[in-house]
Design a protein around this nucleic acid. Structure first.
Length: 482
RNA sequence: GCACCGUUCGUCUAGAGGUUAGGACACCGCUCUUUCACAGCGGUAACACGGGUUCGAGUCCCGUACGGUGUACCA
């Protein structure tokens, strides 16, 4: 049987970076096995629905390269792929469970449930639905149950967890897991508004959609026994489970926005490359067992296996992500980078943004920054002639430095286009000018950089000045001297 | 509180009984150099603790500690 996996987000907002990782692992697993990766929207909680969230999440995923074989946006033979469009189904399956004695009606109000939890808390016992004392099918009796149903009293359907059972399941990441029935709550399957909870909907859909492997985050591990019980109650074969380690904040709590950006949308906006982000996130909780760290999506597909997924949560290291983004920046095709950068340069109305010129600037500066867009500010003196202000009295001090001014004039008065086109000639010219002021080369070059770029750091001065050209160099020197 | 999961350098991790415990990021130093980077070289730095099992445990078992997740008519 071929592999069928699903990524099942709920449309409550932007796509979380952890969700991207989960989606990615599902995708990689499917592609590794020549299987199918499905997108299913879990919108059973209408109160949390956010308009546009589905489209945003699909777009974030698409940007990252995670695409689906089936889903609400591409169709498929197992649809609909949005749970709100499948509601009658869950009711039907819920009733089957009631009929077979695996689930039951309960009529408790929210207040009654709160009071129950309060009592339990006061008594120091675990909060859990008390089937023996609350208002349900068993305590009120069959006749009363039928009467309440007939008068349409608000009710839910709960899973009847066998109190003495030991629920066992195998997890591909964690091994065998055992939990006792007495620890498991009689989970609500169908809410009083008739909508299913996640627990029912996900089991029904995974079965109907013939999902073979459920790959999801570790936070689902504690509720997996409920799902196993549901598969048993329906007489269905459960899928293989694999619970992924969590992405963590620096304090090791579940990754949240309190410690930085967590939405894929944010990473995209900050200028991370999708392939860099995917490469990085793939390594949060998985590694190939070799020393190779740079992987294309295709390489990840062929290398990825569940056996190599780690058990422990991974702190999300923003610094390493930045490093990796820089690695991609240095490796990428310059033409591609040029067209990606051009719009931002146009927006800033820089005058010198001929594509070939921009390509040269990118090649020159990309080793010094982690993001492509850093180049727009880092190289402002290359794209335009309006230089940034220099802090303090550095320029005035230089103007008062006779030795330097003498050297600078010598350079200005003798520089030719040929000098700027040939490294040896450039060096000879600089040495000659420095000597004219009685300076060592280094004592001349650094101030020269400041005068022409208004920066004290940057790429090699020779290629920098070559790009700026003789005319613009002289203009800047004259402006400095006047 | 209870249940479950986890624990190798600061961080991501390799390691499937015998290793000088390896790599990457970060950090520090050196080299290169007109600066900052890049690159190269080098360095600091880890098996949570206690018991077992074994000739021999980072690796297997038990316990403890610590951490995380869950404990909703959320997903």
């Amino acid at each position: 049987m071929s592999v069928r996996v699903r990524f099942a987000p709920s449309p409550t907002g932007y796509l979380h970076i952890g969700s991207l990782r989960t989606a990615l692992y599902n995708y990689l697993f499917a592609k590794h096995h020549g299987g199918v990766c499905i997108l299913r929207i879990e919108d059973t909680d209408r109160t949390r629905f956010v308009e546009g969230a589905i489209e945003e999440q699909i777009e974030s995923l698409r940007w990252a390269g995670v695409v689906f074989d089936e889903g609400p946006h591409v169709g498929g033979n197992y649809g609909p792929y949005v749970q709100s469009e499948r509601f009658p189904l869950y009711r039907e399956y819920g009733m089957k469970l009631v009929a077979s004695g695996h689930a039951y009606y309960a009529f408790d109000t929210a207040e009654e449930l709160d009071a129950m939890r309060q009592r339990q808390q006061n008594a120091g016992i675990a909060p859990k639905y008390d089937r023996a004392t609350m208002r349900n099918q068993y305590t009120v009796g069959e006749a009363e149950t039928q009467r309440l149903l007939a008068e349409q009293a608000p009710h839910v359907i709960r899973l009847k967890v066998p109190l003495t059972a030991e629920i066992r399941f195998h997890d591909e990441v964690r091994g065998d897991v055992v939990m006792h029935g007495r620890e498991i709550d009689d989970q609500i399957l169908l809410k009083s508004d008739g909508f299913p909870t996640y627990h029912l909907a996900n089991v029904v859909d995974d079965h109907l959609m013939e999902i073979t492997h459920v790959i999801r985050a570790e936070e689902w591990l504690p509720s997996t026994p409920k799902h196993v019980l549901l598969y048993e109650a329906f007489g269905w074969k459960p899928p293989v489970f694999a619970h992924l380690p969590l992405l963590l904040n620096p304090d090791r709590s579940k990754m949240s926005k309190r410690h930085g950006d967590v939405m894929v949308h944010d990473f995209r906006g900050k200028g991370y490359f999708p392939d860099a982000l995917v490469n990085f996130v793939a390594f949060c909780g998985w590694n190939p067992g070799t020393e190779q760290e740079m992987f294309t999506l295709e390489e990840l597909c062929s290398a990825f296996t569940l056996e190599r997924v780690a058990k422990a949560g991974a702190v999300f290291d923003y610094k390493k992500l930045d490093w990796m983004n820089g690695e991609y920046l240095r490796k990428k095709d310059v033409a591609e980078l040029t067209s990606a950068l051009l719009p931002a340069l146009q927006e800033r109305r820089y005058p010198y943004i001929e594509p070939d010129y921009v390509s040269s600037v990118i090649s020159l500066l990309r080793e010094r920054v982690a993001f492509l867009h850093d180049i727009t500010e880092f190289g402002d003196y290359l794209f335009g002639d309006v230089l940034q202000d220099v802090e303090g009295s550095a320029l005035a001090d230089l103007r008062a430095d006779d030795a330097f001014v003498t050297a600078l004039r010598a350079w200005r008065d003798t520089v030719t286009d040929e000098d700027l086109a040939d490294h040896d000639r450039f060096k000879g010219l600089a040495e000659g000018a420095a000597a004219a002021g009685g300076l060592k080369l280094g004592k001349f070059m650094k101030p020269l950089r400041l005068v022409i770029t208004h920066r004290d750091v940057g790429a090699d001065l020779f290629p920098t000045l070559k790009l700026i050209g003789k005319r613009r160099c002289i203009e800047r020197i004259d402006s400095f001297l006047s």
